[in-house]
Simulated scan of single mutants.
Amino acid sequence: MKALLSDQPGGPATLRIAELPDPTPGRGELLIRVRACAINFPDVLIIEDKYQLKPPRPFAPGGEVAGEVEAIGEGVEGWAVGDRIIAVPGFGGLVEKIVIPARIAFRLPVERSFEDGAALLLTYATSIHALADRGHLQPGQTLLVLGAAGGVGLAAIELGKAMGARVIAAVSSEEKAQAAREAGADEAVIYPTGPFDRDGQKALSELFKGAVGPAGADVIFDPVGGDYAEPALRSIGWEGRYLVVGFPAGIPKLPLNLTLLKSCDVCGVFWGAFAMRDPAANAAHVEQLFKWWDEGKIAPRISATYPLERAGEAITAIAERRAIGKLVVTLGRS
């Protein structure tokens, strides 16, 4: 089988296509014929050894996949050869075949494409966990979403609207603002590109405050970090919840006096650990996602697809924050 491998720490240029023997599923495992693999920001970090997960090399990046069951390991029940699945293995997805634990697999309905299936779980499951479990978002509350045109940002917009919130999207261009509006944002604000000095951060804070209104944001969804974090936190309302989702702009340092003045919470969001620790709660969230998908309240936006040989280009686009929505690598038919 073909695989895109990381042999050494570095950017997408260090990846290489290789031929590997087909894997065999062990006890409790499924062998999946991968048809699509979505690209996410962790793929940028993992090949540079900057992610919390550091697989032994060589390994294939690619954290979420869709495909068909090709073989079933001992002790696995409820699955048959040919069943369509989606899963988030964390890495290893940029291959033609992958072995995964059966416990992380979810069924992909026949009416959904493999590309759409691959683009669902990581962003939407992260966002529903963030908004429901960590942010306790309620109908009528105000949600500010940073980086709102990325995959996880668009998911947060759609889920925020499905949960009855007023959603303010913060983005870096008019093109991205339009994507946020199409996803259902009530308002989109365009912020300048950092880094910012103190005056720049103050101006950005005023921009956020003007967008969310005098009461402040009840929940702030931040998958960006960096110099955007403190200005966003300054726009939070009384007893608001600031959700720490990711750091493509860098890991920020927040002045904790703001949490006292606003009596607000800063909440970490680590969906992968949550899914491992509470699989029943995660499965309930995924069931809700499929329901909202059927009702048309959410729908993964895929802005581009790539063959396996060009998967490095997709990782580069994510690293440079050029992508709107999701980028998906396709393998074989869909």
Rank of each mutant, 00 (worst) to 15 (best):
L5Q: 10
Q8D: 13
P9A: 07
I17Q: 13
E19D: 12
I32G: 09
C37H: 03
N40Q: 11
N40A: 15
V44Y: 00
K50N: 09
Y51S: 12
Y51G: 13
Q52A: 11
P56N: 13
F59M: 12
P61G: 02
G63A: 14
G63M: 10
A66H: 02
V69R: 05
A71M: 09
G75S: 11
V76L: 08
E77I: 15
I86T: 09
I86M: 13
G90H: 02
F91S: 08
G92P: 01
V95P: 00
I98D: 01
V99C: 05
R103T: 12
A105H: 05
L108C: 08
V110L: 14
F114E: 00
E115P: 03
D116F: 06
A118Q: 05
A125L: 13
A125D: 11
D133C: 14
P139I: 09
L143K: 08
K161M: 03
M163I: 04
M163Q: 02
A169Y: 00
V171I: 06
V171N: 08
S172P: 08
S172L: 07
S173K: 12
S173W: 09
S173L: 01
A183K: 07
V189C: 02
Y191Q: 11
Y191H: 14
P192D: 08
T193W: 15
P195H: 00
Q201T: 06
K202T: 15
A203T: 00
A203Q: 06
L207Y: 11
L207D: 07
A211W: 03
V219M: 00
G225S: 01
P231H: 02
L233Q: 01
L233A: 06
R234M: 11
G237L: 10
G237H: 04
R241I: 00
V244Q: 07
I251T: 15
P252L: 02
K253W: 12
N257E: 03
V266D: 06
V266L: 09
C267T: 06
G268V: 09
V269M: 11
F270T: 15
M276Q: 14
P279H: 03
P279L: 11
A280N: 15
A283I: 09
A284T: 10
E287I: 07
Q288R: 12
L289Y: 00
W292L: 02
E295I: 03
G296E: 06
A299C: 12
A304W: 02
Y306W: 08
E309G: 06
R310M: 09
A311C: 09
A311P: 01
A311N: 05
I315S: 01
A319Q: 05
L327W: 08
